[in-house]
Design a protein around this nucleic acid. Sequence first.
DNA 1: TTGTAAGCGTTATCAC
DNA 2: GTGATAACGCTTACAA
Lengths: 324, 324
Amino acid sequence: MTTISRALSDHHSIGPATKQKVLKLAKKLNYQPNHLAAALRKGKSKLLGVVVPYIEGRFFPSVVHGIESAASKAGYSVIICQSNEDVAHERKNIETLLSAQVAGILVSLSRTTLDFKHFDKVRKRGIPLVFFDRTMEGDNVNAVVLNDRDGGFQSTKHLLQQGCTRIAHFAGLQHLNIYKNRRQGYLDALQLYGLPHDEELIVYCDMTLEEGMAGMRRLLELPNPPDAVFSAGDSSLLGALQLLKQRNIRVPQDVALAGFSNEGFTAITEPMLTSVDQRCEEMGQAAVRLFLELVEAKGSTFSHRQVVLQPELFIRDSSLHQNK
Amino acid sequence: MTTISRALSDHHSIGPATKQKVLKLAKKLNYQPNHLAAALRKGKSKLLGVVVPYIEGRFFPSVVHGIESAASKAGYSVIICQSNEDVAHERKNIETLLSAQVAGILVSLSRTTLDFKHFDKVRKRGIPLVFFDRTMEGDNVNAVVLNDRDGGFQSTKHLLQQGCTRIAHFAGLQHLNIYKNRRQGYLDALQLYGLPHDEELIVYCDMTLEEGMAGMRRLLELPNPPDAVFSAGDSSLLGALQLLKQRNIRVPQDVALAGFSNEGFTAITEPMLTSVDQRCEEMGQAAVRLFLELVEAKGSTFSHRQVVLQPELFIRDSSLHQNK
DNA sequence: TTGTAAGCGTTATCAC
DNA sequence: GTGATAACGCTTACAA
């Protein structure tokens, strides 16, 4: 038995002849290793758990794609769970993954997660935990995030450079780091250009098409409406575009637009939409890389680590004020 | 030990008092069940393997979403693998899933899969195998598919009803059931209207934007160009639309367009694109349901079964010949 | 109703 | 370099 095991797992202390014989017979008998048994014995599986709020749109599918590719290269299989933007569900997902004896867990928080106790158990068990995109605040977490603040900054600065002077912002839920930071970047840019922080111009809403339309409608009713909108999401920006078109307000001449996520449709609308790319695939890969580092460093005094990816602004017609 | 096991798994023959005591202590001690050990002992895990060609666009992410939801409801965790449209990779995926001792496997074939030997092992081991969308031919498979032929038929018939008389077709790889059937539906409709099968009007290409543009370009060079295009995919149709716009050819007045997949962007283009919806979520759910039936029927003489979902044509402006 | 003991397929330890 | 033995955490005959 031992010999067989050694032959199959490329162990030292085994004669090359014996090894060949074993391998040959294994193939002939159609031997199938049982990872479960190995995991049980070793106390370490080759399963990697992933929890995402949902699997739709461009972002999460792409990140998952990146995760799966990188994990698979390192010999790990990926277990996917959806929290459906619900903490209770998220808690259950974590429980499930722990029971499945995963080697590590990658999480992007649900929007209803305000309490983080369910992650204590993961840490206590010494299982590598990496957040991506939507993360817990604090230094004692491992996380891969986008520099959302810089994304908001770049985008807004670009609008300012185009000559816009009254820039509105569609802001998402402020308890989520990503939306908070995008808003902060927006404010940074305004300040750099000496413009006031005007809460009247900030619309707090969900980043959906409908709420984008509603938000734009509200902004147009202002005594002094904006000449640009920076949205923390693309769908809401699309809503704004559609409303503006309905009212025959020209984009970008009357109102310039810039969004966030670089969704596929931004290159299809007329005009095409300027947007910040989130490096989805890279984020997935980086998360796996960080996980692998944590596995390597097991037991040693590996301190927590944040990986920050640099966003890239894709400038398209919706923000180019050629005719202004 | 037995008592503990019984208490935790809601077994009969256990005193309610003992059971409560056990559960209480378990909670207090932060007991975490080990599914791996249970799976090893029982010879059956609660893991469900899924192999898809890739995780992008609208279709596969949505199907995976559906699978995950349904599986999770039935107590299964989902392991995702990508074949990257490569048989070799697909073979490896299957191997991995078998080693992980999954309870079942759901597969959508890679486009390079022409040989199916790697699935024999799955069957031989008695592991439920369900294909979805891209499936093996034959009666001895379990599969959930869309009625692609009817989708092609409906779409083409709709174009004919709009008064089109020279309808071209962007056809995908013909060894894949889905593309073969969409083409067949197209031919069915032509025949119904007494129109000839004209190979000149069929462009065999990848369903990408670029190839759609190229295909449309080729069709326009015909001595007698088409007055409509039915594409087996939406991206290639978008390519056609863009080319037509470049050349100031009106859609739908000069050339009507209809596609397949009901991608998100079909409701955003101008004009919006008519397309066939593939019921992605339902397909995922149906695949899981079929898998669960196979588990139930274990050992009994459950014959193979095909589930066919009915597509739905979403009619939008790109195909409405109001002005013809 | 409860307890005992065996075994699922591996691998780590130790002796040869 | 090879082989016997135990153990990982759980379930399930079977005995009490």
